[in-house]
Amino acid sequence: MTDASAAALPAPPPARRARISFAWVGIVPFLAFAVLFLIMPTLHIVTGAFRNPAGEFTLVNIANLFQPSIIAAYWISIRISVASAFLGCLIGFMLAWAVVLGGLPGWVRSPLLTFSGVASNFAGVPLAFAFLATFGRLGLVTLILRDWFGINLYGMGFNILSFGGLTLTYLFFQIPLMVLIVTPALDGMRREWREAASILGATSFQYWRMVALPILWPTLLGTFALLFANSFGAVATAYALTGSSLSIVPILLFAQIRGDVLQDPHLGYALAFGMIVITGIANFVYIWLRARSERWVK
């Protein structure tokens, strides 16, 4: 590593001290930017959640979150995020597995990865349009199922503007994201591990349980946390899909900021603070589990 050689470079003490005292200046612009446009805005929200309009400390805003409509919004947001992150991880993993280890011909891999790159970035408003045009009341799939197979999707209780519909939509970017992250991880699974396990008498199942999954575990957890945050904070798709008819937290907050619904900015702070807390918990759990499961890495 170049980094190591930097530390090992012999330098006379005075020059070294001079270098250290000035080196940090090089990243001041970046740090200033990060503080001004990432850290401070976030901290402002966090502190705002604990203040009343007069600027005094209070827990009222947080307490106000515990009203049925807001609790319900958090609950459905969490459910959608967990469901779409979990299914995204599972299906994305299977796809990556099929391509890397499942014996598919080599030419499948590159198109799948390219497409995953596209689809994982195809989010927001256009994605909502695409799913409306496909699974909406007049969508292609809805009509085909109705006209050709006599299945009335909406008659069966399906609605694109619902928990199930939104999860189905979010999977369109969640699965590819998982594929993109887990494919290199699966590539990193060395053939010798599998062979060594096999020659030591392990079955395929034992290999996966005792070797492969423990090795992949940190990646899987990390991706789950990322996918969770990814869908938890997604506004555009849901907003374009459902307008304000489905009350998930980011839409509630969106309406709040726009001033459509409530006029109490400090409730907005509390809503946003709640979002940070939840994605923060997701990531904290990830880091904690990862630290536990990665004792074997430097």
Binding site: T42, P250, F254, I257, A272
Partner: peptide, 10 residues
């Protein structure tokens, strides 16, 4: 990790 909507609110 921090939702964009929170950042822009800030």
């Amino acid at each position: 990790v921090i939702p964009p909507i929170v950042i822009v609110f800030g």
